[in-house]
Design a protein around this nucleic acid. Structure first.
Length: 421
DNA sequence: TCTGGGGTCCTAGGACCC
DNA sequence: TCTGGGGTCCTAGGACCC
């Protein structure tokens, strides 16, 4: 039996926890670069500010409803997330963290001690007490059904935010009411296709013969159908699976037109990606870079390209990764465009740097690479000094916009909340 | 003027091998 | 006119998720 716990309007809630003065006001949080709306509290939803809407298109509504606007503050959200997860670890025998704001709990056999619904209420109450964040809890025999229960717990206020969907009768009753596009794993494309086949509710999808699904779609959707029927196909995963790839990319605060600026940006992404790679204790053998202009401006031609390099031997050395990323950029850079975004991707991971060298390779591994990188990471972590590669530049005029950033309430001493006595 | 970032998995098709 | 069969590996692209 699974319970899916997720925090309501997570980013927006994190902002309001430390700002009681915002009670009664709509709150939204913007994506990186203050680009578009990625989180809304209940009042902002009521004010009909659409999810994903470009910020500049919502300005009228924001003024009209006196909406509080925040740039995203990931340091704050990550810290609040770990507090929630720690609480869950204490309440449940096993926790499978699915995203920054949600986790599956393994609650098999818990019914021997407490009813499933009461357990859900207990989780809700404890999280609120310890973090002042409100959560929804969906309980069911499969992950997909638990997601569905969670959706229903949020949608129908009468549930009080907790829904026990352990019985088949209740599963079918609910599925008959839920549109198929709300099912986990059914996105825009697939729901459109399903609708054309006359399948509009979750129940109709659940009752679909698997041969039909296999014929028109893939094994992924077939698995979803089985899960809706109560057959658990998605396993509980307590340990974090090792990453297959690492991406560092950002839209630029201002469009880039100059090669030197782009080179600087790519160098920064490469260095950051290398740090993440070492954080995973991995070595990569594939490095790629990409650049693109904005797809939204019909007046200027669109350009998007990427190039990748397979290294001779896996590395975790920032210098190798940086050099490779710059070589990729040289292949794809074209002057005359107004670039909106760029990035670096690492892939083909190994757990050690030593790979079979070819007999005639002239490659010589860098000496003391591991120690040097460890030192670099240490300096970075402590914040006691600043060291960077020349290619990363100093001015960084292209770096992202965050004009409405809240303080790091929980992770920096000089930004703690001040209480008036 | 201004439209996020970071992931996963599956499939189809081509290259290549015997 | 006739032009094998079966397998693996890799990559690009498409779908999904939060």
């Amino acid at each position: 039996m699974f319970a899916l716990v997720d925090v309501n309007s997570f980013y927006a809630s994190c902002e309001t926890v430390f700002r009681p003065d915002l009670r009664g006001r709509p709150v939204i949080v913007l994506s990186n670069n203050d680009g578009c709306v990625i989180a809304r509290n209940a009042l902002a939803k009521k004010a009909q500010i659409p999810m994903g809407a470009p910020f500049f298109k919502t300005r009228d509504a924001i003024r009209q409803h006196n909406v509080a606007v925040f740039s995203s503050n990931y340091a704050l959200y990550a810290d609040m997330s770990s507090r929630v997860m720690e609480t869950l670890e204490r309440l449940a025998p096993a926790v499978d963290i699915y995203s920054i704001d949600e986790a599956f709990l393994d609650i098999t056999n818990i019914e021997n001690c407490i009813s499933l619904y009461d357990f859900g209420k207990e989780v809700q109450k404890t999280i609120w007490k310890e973090t002042h964040l409100s959560v929804g809890v969906g309980i069911a025999p499969t992950k997909t059904l638990a997601k569905l229960a969670n959706f229903a717990a949020k949608t129908w206020k009468g549930t009080g935010g907790v829904l026990d969907l352990s019985q088949t009768v209740r599963q079918r009753k609910l599925m008959a009411l839920v549109p198929v596009e709300e099912v986990w794993g059914v996105g825009r494309r697939i729901s459109k296709k399903l609708n054309m086949l006359g399948i509009t509710t979750a129940l109709q999808l659940a009752d679909c013969p698997s041969a039909l699904i296999r014929k028109h779609f893939s094994v992924v959707l077939e698995r979803t159908v089985r899960e809706l029927c109560g057959e658990s196909c998605l396993a509980f995963e307590e340990s974090v699976p090792t990453k297959q790839q690492i991406i560092c990319s950002r839209s630029f605060g201002e469009r880039i037109t100059d090669y030197q600026d782009m080179r600087e940006a790519i160098c920064n992404y490469a260095v950051r990606a290398a740090e993440k790679l070492r954080g995973e204790h991995q070595y990569c053998r594939y490095v790629s870079a990409f650049v693109k202009t904005s797809p939204h401006d019909p007046k200027v031609p669109y350009y998007s390209n990427h190039a990748g390099i397979k290294l001779l031997t896996p590395t975790q050395d920032s210098r190798d990764i940086l050099a490779a990323a710059v070589r990729c950029l040289e292949q794809i850079w074209k002057p005359g465009y107004r670039y909106q975004k760029g990035g670096v991707m690492l892939g083909d991971f190994f757990s050690q740097g030593v790979a079979q060298l070819n007999l005639f390779d002239e490659y010589q591994p860098k000496r003391n690479s591991e120690q040097l990188m460890a030192t670099l990471d240490e300096i970075h972590k402590k914040g006691t000094g600043k060291v960077w590669f020349a290619g990363q530049g100093i001015q960084r005029g292209w770096s992202m916009k965050r004009e409405m950033l809240s303080p790091a309430y929980t992770t920096r001493f000089n930004e703690l909340v001040k209480a008036k006595v």
